[in-house]
Amino acid sequence: MGIKQAIVKTALPLIKPGMVVGFGGGSTVAELVNEAANHVNDIQVVTPSPTTHQLATVLGYTVIDSQYCDRVDIAFDGCDQLDHHGNALKSGGGIHANEKIIATLADQYWLLTQKDRLVADKFDTKTPLVLEVLPHALALVMRTVAAHGGQPTLRTANNRDGMTLTDNGNFLIDCHFPSYDELPLLNQQFATLAGVVETSYFDHLVTNAILGDGEAGTVQRLFN
């Protein structure tokens, strides 16, 4: 059994019949979506991920849109980095605005990830703070990030000419900083800036996490 399968095996009993379940993106969550279909398919699914939406539909789940959902029993997602206080950076996928909606709706928000993504103290600056930004606010946000000591980069598309657009039709700005010593304050300043839809920093939204250690072949919970 691979480490992703071990994480999924630990997460599966948390899903009960009749629940509204949030599934994010990524390969580990996809494994959970597949496995749950064989064990607990009497659930409704809400997801921020177009890929997961398609998978869940093919597997026969009832998939509902978050705009019509006022509560989620439990949600599962991945992350780029996680700390011991239930904070996370979710920067790679570019769907953090929609992910954060579901995380906030959820009674329980669980991250499924590798143990080496758990940081001991502060977040590693190799992962940028990502801002989803209204197109009209691009110049304002780029200037403000630079004024706070960051290096803002507009995310471009890999498979076509032009910028990466979110499912909401907005831009993504990857913001690299020399230090994350004041990340919560920095995040708050950008979250309240005109034109910023959402940031990729999840502030105390994580209920728990299932962490897999590929080398040791073990799985543990962040909070017991």
Rank of each mutant, 00 (worst) to 15 (best):
L205F: 04
L154F: 04
I74S: 05
A103T: 04
L82P: 14
L172S: 11
C175H: 08
Q220D: 15
R155H: 08
G2R: 10
G217V: 03
M19T: 10
E132K: 07
G22K: 05
G25C: 03
Y180A: 00
D116F: 14
D181I: 00
S66Q: 14
D116G: 00
V33S: 09
T62M: 03
I101H: 01
I210F: 06
M19G: 04
Q67V: 11
H136Y: 14
T164R: 13
V58M: 10
I3W: 04
V206A: 03
Q189A: 05
H136W: 11
R155W: 08
Y68H: 12
S27K: 13
A216N: 15
A56T: 10
A36P: 00
K4L: 05
Q108S: 13
V20Q: 05
P50F: 11
D80G: 06
P13Y: 12
R117G: 09
H176V: 03
Q188R: 11
V141N: 14
F223V: 13
A30R: 14
L129Y: 06
D65E: 11
V8E: 11
Q67T: 13
N208A: 02
N41L: 06
L183M: 03
P50V: 15
L140R: 15
G150F: 07
G18E: 11
H96V: 07
I101T: 11
R71A: 12
N41E: 05
V29D: 08
T164M: 14
N224C: 10
D42C: 01
F190T: 00
G78V: 09
D77N: 07
G195D: 03
R71M: 08
Q81Y: 05
G86A: 08
L172V: 11
L59C: 12
G25K: 09
H85Q: 14
G169M: 11
Q108L: 01
R143Y: 11
Y61K: 01
Y109Q: 01
V130K: 02
V206D: 03
I64L: 13
E215T: 12
C175G: 08
P17H: 09
V63S: 01
G94F: 02
E132W: 06
L105W: 09
L138G: 05
V21W: 07
G25H: 07
Q67I: 12
T153Y: 10
A36F: 00
I3G: 08
A11F: 06
D213T: 01
V21R: 05
L111K: 08
L140F: 09
A88Q: 09
M1S: 14
D83R: 02
G24Y: 05
F171C: 08
L112K: 08
K9C: 02
G149F: 09
C69R: 04
Q5V: 06
V46R: 02
R143S: 14
F123V: 02
Y68D: 11
R160M: 13
V46M: 05
L14H: 13
Q54A: 15
A6W: 02
I15P: 00
A36H: 02
V72I: 12
A103V: 02
L118W: 07
H39K: 13
R221Y: 15
Q54W: 10
V33W: 05
G22H: 09
A36I: 01
V33D: 03
T166W: 12
N158F: 06
H39G: 02
L222C: 06
A120K: 12
E35R: 13
K122G: 00
V130Q: 03
Y109C: 00
Q81D: 03
G2V: 00
R160T: 15
